[in-house]
Design a binder for these strands. Sequence first.
DNA 1: GATTTTTTGGGCTTGCCAGCCCAGTTCCTC
DNA 2: GAGGAACTGGGCTGGCAAGCCCAAAAAATC
Lengths: 217, 217
Amino acid sequence: MKASAGVREPRKLTDKGQATRERILEHAAELIYTKGVHATNNEQLRRAAGVSGSQLNHYFPTKESLVLAVIEWRAERVLSFHRSERFASFDSLDALRDWADFYVGFERAHQEGCTLGSLASEIIKTDLDVHDELAKAFEQWGDIFRDGLQRMQKLGRISADADPVRLANLLLSAFQGGMLLSQVQRNTTPLRDALQAAIDYVQTFETSLDSASPRVQ
Amino acid sequence: MKASAGVREPRKLTDKGQATRERILEHAAELIYTKGVHATNNEQLRRAAGVSGSQLNHYFPTKESLVLAVIEWRAERVLSFHRSERFASFDSLDALRDWADFYVGFERAHQEGCTLGSLASEIIKTDLDVHDELAKAFEQWGDIFRDGLQRMQKLGRISADADPVRLANLLLSAFQGGMLLSQVQRNTTPLRDALQAAIDYVQTFETSLDSASPRVQ
DNA sequence: GATTTTTTGGGCTTGCCAGCCCAGTTCCTC
DNA sequence: GAGGAACTGGGCTGGCAAGCCCAAAAAATC
């Protein structure tokens, strides 16, 4: 895996080409999530996606371009998920707890960890030119939490004493760190504990107006 | 980097052999911390440690045995540091803040991340037989915080409401996650925010007896 | 329909690097 | 001092995998 600038400009693909590219990308993302970047090679990917080596090279001329595309793909999915109706812009503590419960109940959390975070931590020290893309993704992720917290303040649910940026960083850090520890320990206790405690801390800023909403223990 | 069982039993080395082995190990740890496991090869290590390829192979027959030794070496140092007089068994909030300040001020935090955590996250998905060693190290690390929190309870500094295991998991998760985010963002804000918020949460359990101690903002 | 572009296939090439070979030097034990 | 063990040196080998070659087939364009 060498540093390379051989990233072909994205050009207009036919529907068929687009479908092939997408299929390769999805399989790559899955293999990388399961086995890690370094243990994922072209032969495995070729087989999984049902394409030839030339097709792989055609759509992704270098491994770097493939990994970069996987990062973008993963980021887009994570961000979309966090922006979905389900979490209602994270304007309530209940939304945060729903989010936490989702990941604690996510079977693969303590096996492969965070889909984006585990990839980031594998390659952050490599020479791959992926840093900006990763930074952008995580920044946007953090912004989702920050914005949610700001909404909570605006709605009078948590007090103005709370610092949304700081709490957003706590939530995301607890998540990423909890994922790593859960992978290492092979159970979700660290993730569960970290997320619940982080959200409990957010709750300490709850205003008495909003304290009337019961919290499921 | 293949799965391998070729780990030679540790045997008694001469002083000279021990010194050579240690020198190799230290340089390996440094290269791996800086460049990552996968970008660290025998040639670089050979040069850095001033030994021949045969010596490398003599003391560490496979890369797996080398990486495992680096993990042990790193874990031992991290745990010793956390057990040092400096943190007084983490029996006070001030000790926790001192710890946080140390790492926020640690120049390499936002470049290479946590010495042990970054290595763990690089290799957790590989076939290397390192899982148990990593799990043990992180468990002991978490236990240091848990024990400290229990001492705080016993000393009446924080209330019995606090769950030491849970808070320990929060602290360690905030740390690991904060390190990753700081690496990605290339500044220590995420780490600082996460640690301060996590410790502030611990502080919410502070007893009024101990609230007399001023906290530097 | 002819030509061009895009997609696809089969497999080869080359460089990297982990592991190993062969043997010399130093140190330890009897 | 002899023999064996440990340490050390120089460099080779073979397998892996990323990237590339050559060309056929399908689709798009004129």
